[in-house]
């Protein structure tokens, strides 16, 4: 009975969605007058000298969203920690050593993954990628090690330090913009020439900080969830 009702409802929703989105032409240039898109592309190229315009939007034009975004991840990690918190961990972790192939492969792959992650978030403003993507790649690297070795420990202290310092750099960069009389998160460093590593003022620095933060946070999240004591056995 519930299935039927839901199907009818979804049919009506489908009708309205299709009706709206069929009128939005795919791939057709909808904005003629002066609009946000051209402004961003032009300003990102000429004013900020950042080649990857998506990064310039994410970090500079709509930097406040990213600040909120980073807080969302930070709070999600905190909320996750508080939800899964248990005072006396009883029962041993059920993590087991993966097979030798996985262990040796993990050992081999761990360094390149971290290197790739670092590359991605350092070149955020030049090539596609950036803080979030780089951070996640690093997290997957640590995940690989956690899955391969059951006794692989990620020290909680270091994670908190990295996470907090990265967040502080992001927020303080924004506040220094404010202190220097400009507005919050405004670029106050020289923007260099486009397409070389040190271009775009504070944008790469912020994105690197975001990279570290996201990397540390997601590793923390995965570590808390993996080390969630196996409840079934005890």
């Amino acid at each position: 009975m519930k299935k039927v009702i839901v199907l009818i409802l979804l049919a009506v929703v489908a009708y309205y969605l299709v009706d709206v989105f069929s009128q939005i032409k795919f791939g057709e240039n909808r904005f003629q007058g002066e609009n946000v898109r051209d402004f961003y592309l032009d300003k990102s190229k000429n004013d900020l000298h950042v080649s990857n315009s998506v990064t310039s939007i994410v970090v500079n034009f709509r930097g406040f969203d990213t600040l909120g975004e980073v807080t969302v991840l930070f709070l999600a990690a905190t909320a996750l920690g508080s939800v899964l918190y248990r005072r006396k961990a009883h029962g041993e972790a059920v993590l087991f050593n993966a097979s030798t192939i996985v262990r040796s492969g993990a050992h081999l792959l761990f360094a390149p993954i971290l290197l790739l992650g670092a590359y991605v978030f350092i070149h955020g403003h030049l090539s596609p990628g950036g803080g979030f993507q780089g951070g996640t790649i690093i997290a997957t690297g640590f995940l690989l090690m956690l899955l391969a070795y059951h006794d692989y420990k990620v020290s909680h202290g270091v994670l908190t330090w990295v996470e907090s310092l990265a967040g502080l750099t992001f927020a303080s960069l924004g506040l220094t913009g404010l202190i220097l009389g400009k507005t919050f998160l405004e670029n106050f460093l020289p923007i260099g020439t486009i397409n070389d590593l040190f271009s775009g003022g504070i944008i790469p620095i912020i994105y690197i900080a975001v990279g570290f933060k996201v990397g540390a946070e997601l590793t923390g999240v995965l570590y808390t969830m993996l080390n969630e004591k196996e409840y079934k056995k005890s």
Binding site: V36, R37, L41, S53, I57, P128, I194
Partner: peptide, 21 residues
């Protein structure tokens, strides 16, 4: 929407970066 060195001077039509952000 990336002004990589190859394409920086030709300034081709670019996809809208805002939804991507």
């Amino acid at each position: 929407p990336i002004f990589s060195p190859a394409v920086i001077d030709k300034n081709p039509a670019m996809v809208d970066p805002v939804p991507q952000a």
